[in-house]
Write a protein that binds this DNA or RNA. Structure first.
Lengths: 338, 338
DNA sequence: ATGAAAGCGCTAACAT
DNA sequence: ATGTTAGCGCTTTCAT
């Protein structure tokens, strides 16, 4: 058995209450007994048991991190990076992160994650879109909640989001500053908030520059923004519009697809067409040419969510604020001045 | 306050002991009281408190995952993938993973991770090399230990390792089967076990094929196996040896460096030189040509380590076994028959 | 300033 | 087959 508070009390000839007060930094204890107790603690190498503390304090020192299983298992490690950001930030504190995934087909019959039912978390970070049913169940618990990369409908909790509008603005402005006017936007499902916001940034940038919006070179009908759909979107746009000089793709995967299409069809990048993506995935550097893009700091998203969670646990307040994590323009070789 | 065992006992008109026995599946309880209790549990939506259980059972249901901070923060997400593999596997069980990092400059004055001192884990997975000082401190605790991607000197615990020798064999055999005889090996620090084993696989394959070993086309002096060192190694080898037709690089990063060197110097891949790497990083597919390699299932490593950890907690035995996780030959376009 | 004692929610002897 | 009760290792009134 490990050393307990009793052992310390016995050896220091005080009560366990006194030891407890000492380790909790209470100053109702005289300096000399304090010294005495501290000395014994050191001698015995005593460390309070977390289990015992958890039980009596009705806290756990754990924060849950919840996402759907398909988000967890996605090839592009987006949500796992966010998770790692939270883990990293937690490492600087006295909290641990507990991970749980829920089926994306969650419904009212599914049970809640174990850490909710067993009360082993003090707060919960929800990453990415999760089923509405889950959300409403969750809200029945008086548990601090923070959302990251997803803003639920009836939002009354803190939310951490990518500054997608600004990212779209940065990307498009970069192209405009390089002299481009015929700038295509290649996106996925427009009903997805991130993509909608990136498009908003795009239109805003054109507006600011007095370039008029041409809906023929806007593609927003792909269901999922992956490489293949990027390829197909490029085909459908470039076959009908010959004078495009630049493309802003809503993410790097699509941008890569666009690059493939252009190469396959004799376009040179960036000489004939400049292209910029969004995300800054690892692969960008290895592309030929390396892809200019908007860097999304996934790790920071998670870290930020964790910080806010910690705050709201400690302040007992659940104010609904929105934190926008800034993105960054990364200029590489796929864009050029004309 | 949440529903407790008392509430259930009261409403079911039994003692808390009975309730406890029921929820723990003890069969000394008559079917009818059992039904009665179960019914009340459902009505009240009762779930036992983990904190209370932890305290009384002297278990925590948590498994620690430990690595050095630089391993955690490495750009190539090697150890974090292993971590995620453990996390994933844990998701199928009743365990949670608690992550902690230690400074790689750890010494005897540093304190142990909090979860050790506070006794909040039932077992510990150690990933990658950690300081010896830490290991000896750790072994003082009677805590099940499992190592992954690192085999400590005085090993008396289960170890999960990549089958590097077999990987080296697979890679080299592939080249040999494609008709190559002048096969360079480009590696990093040979004192690193993984690299040493990959080289062993290489020499063994040459041996088997009756090809004689030429130490002039073996490079094992780079301190760190990254892209730049791959480039430099290729330079030093190819300037002196003109007849090399294939390269086995000890990892993909170096392989990429080698590819860059070869392209910069007018070699065509795979027409002039075939090249195979090791790891199977995301970027391989985007290279031109896509890189043949040996796939290292990082995720599986973590999952395997977790399973073994769970086993050894439940069986109370700490036998020192070595589990070799199989690797896989991935043939893409950077190697060709001659 | 310190101690006694109750209690957090559960489990497991031990009784009955 | 079920109940009583004593802890698990702490924190926290309430006394002194």
């Amino acid at each position: 058995m490990a050393v307990t508070i009793k052992d310390v009390a016995l050896k220091a000839k005080v009560s366990t209450a006194t030891v407890s007060l000492v380790i909790n930094g209470n100053n109702r204890i005289s300096p000399e007994t304090k010294r005495k107790v501290l000395k014994v603690i050191k001698e015995l190498d005593y460390h309070p048991s977390k289990s015992a503390r958890d039980l009596v304090s009705q806290k756990t020192g754990n924060i849950g991190f919840l996402l759907t299983d398909d988000h967890f298992l996605r090839t592009e490690p987006f949500y796992t990076r966010i998770f790692l950001g939270s883990e990293f930030e937690a490492g600087n504190t006295n909290y641990y992160i507990l991970l749980a995934t829920v089926p994306s087909t969650y419904n009212n019959n599914n049970s809640l994650p174990r850490f909710i039912l067993e009360r082993s978390i003090d707060g919960l970070i929800v990453a990415g879109k999760v089923p509405e049913e889950l959300l409403s169940k969750l809200s029945e618990y008086k548990l601090p909640l923070t959302f990251v990369d997803y803003k639920p409908e009836r939002q009354k909790y803190p939310v951490v989001l990518i500054d997608n509008i600004h990212g779209g603005l940065l990307a498009t402005n970069h192209l405009i500053e390089y002299g481009h006017k015929k700038i295509a936007f290649i996106g996925g499902d427009i009903s997805h908030p991130s993509i909608r916001d990136r498009l908003t940034g795009y239109t805003r940038a054109l507006d600011n520059a007095g370039i008029n919006f041409n809906k023929n070179i806007i593609h927003t009908i792909s269901p999922y923004p992956d490489r293949q759909n990027g390829y197909d979107a490029a085909k459908s746009i470039f076959t009908k519009n010959k004078n495009i000089t630049a493309v802003f793709a809503c993410n790097d995967a699509m941008a890569i697809g666009v690059m493939h299409y252009l190469k396959d069809n004799g376009y040179s990048i960036p000489d004939d067409v400049s292209i910029i993506g969004f995300d800054d995935v690892e692969a960008d550097l290895l592309l030929d040419p390396p892809l200019s893009t908007i860097r999304v700091p996934k790790f920071d998203l998670g870290a930020e969510a964790f910080k806010i969670m910690k705050e709201s646990i400690q302040n007992k307040e659940t104010k609904s604020k929105i934190v926008l994590v800034p993105v960054e323009l990364i200029i590489r070789k796929s864009t050029r001045k004309i």
